[in-house]
Amino acid sequence: MYEIIAFYLFSALTIGLFLVTVMSKNVLYAMTSLAAGMVLISGFFFVLGADFLGVVQLIVYVGAVMALYSFAMMFFDATRDIKEKNTNSALVFLLGGLSALVLVLMFAAPIHSDAIHALYPMHVGVGNAQDVGIVLFTKYLVPFEVAAVMLLVAMIAGIILAGKKMDKSLTKDTSIDDEILVLKDEK
């Protein structure tokens, strides 16, 4: 009973919030509803009894959307609406509608199948984290390690891109002062 109420509440809220994300012209509204929607998705995991995945969803997406915010802060004035340029709305409508239809068909397909059963059901009395760990380190070991290596590569690339001038102190850098002095002299 409670679960059904919680499911429909979370569904309505999540869909509404993601609608705002897509429709809104204000960066702050779009980002905030995205963050709130991501947090509410973790509610589904809690309703399903997958506490660990729910908390992972919470922690990962709180951090990820926070990083998006910092880009929004750098590129836009958050208190103003943004003028969007929609050149070909018919094409957008067609493509968006088609992909939505395909997604609905994909996720609705299991309704007509009796062959759906859990390959790795949760064990009674064993924690969520242990269950996830067992599956990750047996069945999905290779994808897991490949993902880890990919993240490591991305991290090293990020450090190299950002760290070229890391040994120079911004506050002690006097080269900009010279440029200002040159400009003054020219005037």
Binding site: L28, T32, A35, V39, D51, F52, V55, V56, L58, I59, V62, G63, M66, Y69, A72, M73, A78, T79, G127, N128, A129
Partner: peptide, 25 residues
């Protein structure tokens, strides 16, 4: 919860949206 510590840390992390949104708005 069985995963109490993670939940608390995640919720405290979500709390930092307060200062962030306050500052930006």
């Amino acid at each position: 919860l069985n995963i109490g510590i993670l939940f608390v840390l995640g919720m405290m992390a979500a709390g930092l949206y307060g200062p962030l949104l306050a500052g930006m708005s």
